Simulated assay, not measured.
Amino acid sequence: MHPDIYEHFHRDEREFVDRAWEWVVNAGEYHETKLTDFLDPRQRFILESLVNRHPDVHAVYSGGHPDAERVRALVAPDYRDLTHEDMGLNVLGITSGDQKFLSLEHGDYMGSVLGLGIKRSKIGDIYVLEDGCHVVVTDDIGTYLHMNLSQVHRVHVMTELLPMDKLKVKEIKLETMELTVASLRLDGIASDVHRISRTKMVIPIKAGRCRVNWKVVEDPSTMLKDGDMVSMQGFGRFKVLETGGLTKKGRYRVKVGKFT
């Protein structure tokens, strides 16, 4: 790969860039087809940019739902019709007779699945529903999860494997917050959203635990803008919904949506 391609990506992304470029080259030069595991939106962006660099390669993406955040990609020579390709997806339905089940959250399901030794890349979006949970998974681990997932956060559960047309999704709820901040800096807005001091917020950012639009950002002074998605390991995620005008005291009005 030409070395200048790395200029566009964070150093932590180089391993994935190398892998993705290998998929593209194998499709273009050796007529191979590659079905990836689940990619997050940043990985999808990287793969799409690499596919666009090769004139003889194309790809399709699916996570089981048009608005899926995590998707699998099928990378192939451009002469291959990908319209009806099987993307290898299953739905793991999780239910329980225990009332405690209703208080389980996204992280509880994620932790229990990963606790069975499953890689994160095998798990797509997780939809916590009123009466259970639907998890999109790669078809090669569906049966294993169905046979082995019996508890979620100490609550006994039952599972079933469902076809993709049975997937139920839930609209993501955002807790809207109206802030006034001195600037649109990442550390300032994040500290207000998570209600901790800016000094303490700088630590996880500099440690590489913050992503803006799924890309690692280590500079606390990074300026945020409308539409930016910020995730902080250990704190959760929020989205900048709107940056408004200035107050009389010269502070910025910002509307943020915190994922609940």
Results as ranks from 00 to 15, higher is better:
residue 201 M to R: 02
residue 78 D to N: 15
residue 67 D to W: 06
residue 189 I to L: 07
residue 63 G to I: 02
residue 163 P to M: 09
residue 100 K to W: 02
residue 160 E to N: 12
residue 22 E to N: 15
residue 114 L to R: 01
residue 228 D to Y: 00
residue 82 L to K: 07
residue 243 T to E: 05
residue 88 G to A: 01
residue 112 S to Q: 03
residue 36 T to G: 06
residue 25 V to L: 15
residue 150 S to F: 15
residue 254 V to K: 00
residue 8 H to Y: 14
residue 173 K to D: 14
residue 220 P to W: 05
residue 89 L to I: 07
residue 251 R to N: 08
residue 164 M to H: 01
residue 188 G to I: 05
residue 89 L to Q: 07
residue 215 K to C: 10
residue 209 R to S: 13
residue 77 P to M: 02
residue 77 P to I: 09
residue 183 S to F: 02
residue 179 L to R: 01
residue 141 I to D: 07
residue 228 D to R: 02
residue 163 P to D: 07
residue 57 V to R: 05
residue 84 H to T: 13
residue 13 E to Q: 08
residue 259 F to H: 07
residue 77 P to N: 11
residue 78 D to K: 12
residue 69 E to W: 09
residue 149 L to D: 00
residue 21 W to L: 15
residue 221 S to T: 13
residue 207 A to Y: 02
residue 189 I to W: 06
residue 91 V to R: 02
residue 145 L to P: 03
residue 253 R to C: 03
residue 229 M to Y: 15
residue 111 G to C: 07
residue 210 C to W: 04
residue 34 K to D: 09
residue 226 D to N: 14
residue 153 H to Q: 11
residue 235 F to C: 08
residue 181 V to L: 06
residue 213 N to T: 09
residue 231 S to Q: 07
residue 154 R to D: 00
residue 126 I to Y: 02
residue 167 L to Y: 06
residue 95 T to Y: 03
residue 231 S to I: 04
residue 141 I to G: 10
residue 154 R to W: 00
residue 78 D to H: 14
residue 32 E to L: 11
residue 4 D to V: 13
residue 146 H to W: 10
residue 65 H to Y: 14
residue 220 P to R: 10
residue 151 Q to E: 12
residue 133 C to S: 07
residue 174 L to R: 12
residue 27 A to Y: 03
residue 179 L to E: 05
residue 87 M to Q: 05
residue 100 K to R: 12
residue 234 G to W: 02
residue 213 N to A: 06
residue 24 V to S: 00
residue 23 W to D: 03
residue 174 L to V: 10
residue 16 F to Y: 03
residue 79 Y to S: 11
residue 253 R to P: 05
residue 151 Q to R: 15
